[in-house]
């Protein structure tokens, strides 16, 4: 098995799985019916992407591995998503701030991944770009509405940006698998678009009359499987059926 390629794929795919799961929790509880539908839509897109990546990863792993084995049957230390995407749905300000900070990154990542030498990854990226462009438009619009809207919304979304900012530096860290895959022309060098990311995020936050947090202290670890305490609970829901009823088909 090409362990580096496998880990590289999971490093991207796990973000879609975990964020999709977080958005799935909201279904039926949104602030309006239209927002509810939009968030479910984003969740659906992310799960669709997850499936494409995992199906590919399953082929690379040993015979008989399925997308569901990868999604549901790993231990908590084996999930490689960013800390940002596992953060809980505290309020709509947090939900949109998390989405926005991830979407800007996600789109930049996919635009590079589309040029990958790996044709499968390039194809998944190409398809996902259309979806993620929409996600970014949705979350950017909401950041602007909430920032500019009323005092309460301004404060809430500022609090959310401030509290999530500490997870943004990790987006640009590289794992061993990343380095090998960049070397082979398959992976994306995320450090290259860090400035572009900050520029784009800053532009929207300024338009939303929001302040860029000044903290220099950042959290990391998701890419190495060292998560926040929130992930364990998310996984207990996610894995419940597969753990309680092992080896069955659904």
């Amino acid at each position: 098995m090409n362990t580096n390629l496998y880990n590289y794929i999971l490093g991207i795919a796990d973000n879609s799985l975990i964020l999709g799961q977080r958005l799935g929790e909201l279904c039926g509880h949104g602030p309006s019916l239209e927002i509810d539908i939009a968030c479910t839509n984003i969740s659906l897109d992310l799960f669709g992407q997850t499936r494409s990546y995992y199906q590919y990863a399953a082929k690379i792993k040993e015979e008989g591995t399925t997308e569901d084995d990868i999604a549901f049957l790993r231990r908590e230390r084996e999930y490689m998503n960013l800390l940002l995407v596992e953060q809980p749905n505290r309020d709509f300000g947090h939900i949109m701030a998390r989405q926005f900070l991830f979407d800007v990154y996600h789109l930049l990542l996919l635009q590079e991944l589309e040029k990958s030498r790996d044709m499968t990854l390039a194809a998944i990226a190409k398809k996902s770009i259309k979806e993620v462009s929409y996600h970014l438009r949705f979350s950017s619009d909401w950041i602007k509405r909430l920032g500019d809207g009323i005092e309460e919304s301004h404060q809430r979304v500022q609090t959310a940006i401030d509290s999530l900012w500490t997870y943004t530096d990790e987006l640009f860290h590289q794992t061993e698998a990343d380095k090998v895959m960049i070397e082979e022309g398959i992976g994306v060098d995320v450090t290259k678009f860090k400035d572009d990311y900050l520029k784009r995020v800053t532009a929207i936050l300024e338009e939303a009359t929001l302040k860029i947090p000044e903290t220099k202290w950042f959290q990391k670890g998701g890419k190495q499987g060292i998560h926040t305490e929130h992930l364990g609970y998310l996984l207990s829901d996610l894995q419940y059926m597969q753990r309680t009823y092992p080896n069955m088909e659904w």
Binding site: S43, E67, D68, F72, L238, W250
Partner: peptide, 19 residues
């Protein structure tokens, strides 16, 4: 049951149905 659906395929179908 969205967060606890037993497979990715079922999860996606359930989400789409509720949508």
């Amino acid at each position: 049951w969205i967060t606890r659906a037993p497979s990715l395929r079922r999860k996606v179908a359930l989400l789409a149905k509720i949508q």
